[in-house]
Amino acid sequence: MLELENVHAYYGNSHILQGVSLAVPTGKCVALLGRNGAGKSTTIHTIAGLHKSQRGSIRFKSKPVESLTSYQISREGIGLVPQGRRIFPSLSIRENLTMAARKNLKGDTSEWDIEKVYELFPVLKEREKNMGTQLSGGQQQMLAIGRALMTDPQFLLMDEPSEGLAPVIIDQIGDIVAKLKESGLSILMVEQNISLACQAADEILIMNKGTIVWKGTPDELLENDEIQHKYLGV
């Protein structure tokens, strides 16, 4: 569904992505692991069009998207759940969701709307009048996921959904990701939490210094202490 081929990206003179190639098949969840500063968020931002790649190709549903702007990429069906959630503080919880709503132009009912998001996250409905930033970290993560779902995506980019959350909440996030996958979404998830990644993903990629250095199943990673030690500092 999503394919990156030899993608290079820079911040000024620093060469951050040094030829990233990866693929996320339809209906699968792929986890991208790696140390701080490995270039994981840059990969996510480059796919979402928030950062421009210098070279290489990004194809979504076989269509090249690397030269599209971020709003066009979103309309192609890629939803972003960014690192740090980036909830809009000036908006209520409800507004955070409705502002992202995608009117389905073809007239057929869209997969996701505010009722479905509230069904998935009832706590958001209870507190819909509150401002987005009055939520706990876990609830803000739900809001960020719900907001991305409102754009009616077929594909989700999730950047460290477990960051800063308590272990119980991280388990909940794992369940949510499983539900999203069941609903037919394909997911590329950046994670630092190995157990969440291995629980949620069908395939694991490890990134180091701007390239993918290892690829395998969750079980292969859990058995491979050397890789865990070398690239993930376990």
Binding site: S70, S74, R75, L80, E95, N96, T151
Partner: peptide, 21 residues
Amino acid sequence: RVGAIIRAGVDDRAMVAALGI
């Protein structure tokens, strides 16, 4: 909704664009 989008744009413009606006 336009008002909400504009307020969101003041908060975090890039995020607004990433939501398809």
